[in-house]
Design a binder for these strands. Sequence first.
DNA 1: CGTTAGCTTGAAATCTGTCAATGATTGTGG
DNA 2: CCACAATCATTGACAGATTTCAAGCTAACG
Lengths: 254, 254
Amino acid sequence: MMGLSASEINTRPKDPPLFRRFTSTGLLDRTDTLALAQLPWSKQSLAPHDRFEANQSFSIVAAGILCRENRTPEGRRQLLGMILPGDVCNYSLVTGLKPMTTQVAMVRSTVLTTDLDRLTALIELRPRILSALLAHLTIDNAMTEELVLSLGCRSALERMAHFLCEIDYRLGRMGLSENHQFTFSLTQAELGHYLGLSAVHVNRTLQELRRRKLISTQGSRVALTDIGGLKAVGGFSPAYLTGTPAFAHRLGAA
Amino acid sequence: MMGLSASEINTRPKDPPLFRRFTSTGLLDRTDTLALAQLPWSKQSLAPHDRFEANQSFSIVAAGILCRENRTPEGRRQLLGMILPGDVCNYSLVTGLKPMTTQVAMVRSTVLTTDLDRLTALIELRPRILSALLAHLTIDNAMTEELVLSLGCRSALERMAHFLCEIDYRLGRMGLSENHQFTFSLTQAELGHYLGLSAVHVNRTLQELRRRKLISTQGSRVALTDIGGLKAVGGFSPAYLTGTPAFAHRLGAA
DNA sequence: CGTTAGCTTGAAATCTGTCAATGATTGTGG
DNA sequence: CCACAATCATTGACAGATTTCAAGCTAACG
């Protein structure tokens, strides 16, 4: 257990950008962020395929990629959401319900965890933190809805293009994508589990995107070489990733 | 504007079951429900295809069916969720963000709306109401995730079977389905927009379910004649529709 | 009673999945 | 540092599910 060092609190690119997503909502000010950072966080390392469970705590991804997943009774697997650095793993604190889905590390990842009681106490002092959590929860849900749109309405090529745009955007705002280039090491089978496609078809879809000069790849390094074209193919627009405040809401602001 | 009559507060089958879903979480007691019912609710009637927007208020469906929907930039339509009697239309009060999706009445519907300020004030007095809202929000999100599972992993027949089981379950707990028979008057095209299928294929899928004696229909009346078989085909299990409390959570319980 | 929306049917086209085999890459232990 | 094993990516041929198109039918509604 430790508080976070100054460099980890820093929310500019290149520094560990832990709370950048929180500040990016505009709902937290610097003092909120500092107060959050000074909670006692414990760091946990996860190997690929490790389940992550944090029912009685609150966690944020510091590095790597987790996924929420679900399976049909027969065992077919569906990934429901990508949890990237800066994202909250577990909203039980807010929802009061057990998470209904499993979370799994897709690559080697590290997660920061803090105690629920302490965070609850902090929220009493700084209700904006609760607002920010609720905003994040809502945006995560909007991402799930966008996935429904992809699975229901878009072809394989469109889904993949849309997906890459989303990941680029989300990594970019955390300082983990530059010039639309980033490291992303899911297997094609895993991509398929997320996009509702077979591994073979993921492969062919990526080839088609390369053939059209929309992307290029080397190993786990991805470059979106024609971000405009990719957005056009995928019908991507990032509105759902930001959210717009409805009004000053006063829940818990007593 | 009016408070609700005694019969509308009643949460047993056959009486207007407005707050049955709230009590069903086990998070509200009778005094909470009464307090909710005594807020000034205004009733609104919606015709099919009417948009419903309630950003600055809080609404519950009293009768009919609304859907959240979203469209690709090219205009392809995807329904994201079915909002049935007893369901909350709008969680802006809780999330603090503008809803990111449109809501549309699928059939003639009525919606009850109350003022945000009054509800907020009531929540200060009765924080369990906030807990209940958060639980509902979480369950709605779990339904979206189950839709992702359907779209990503299940065949047309499985999706349809699963869908019918879910609707039966949800209507049933509100007293609107008996013996697995209920009235449900969406067009096949609309079902397709929800399940990610073409209208033609929806038709063939329903025929196949009838041929297997799993369902029967007369007009908008649906009977699940072999609920066990239907659940087996769809891989349906209602766990995601109830949620399990994680712990007594104290947000706002100050 | 006519009109319109919705339902049903068939045939053909398309997309995506499955199967099976072959390369390429990565990580590990010697 | 190399060799090996295991995982992952790629390819081709084929099968299957679903869409599209087009037409006819039915039922609800003014």
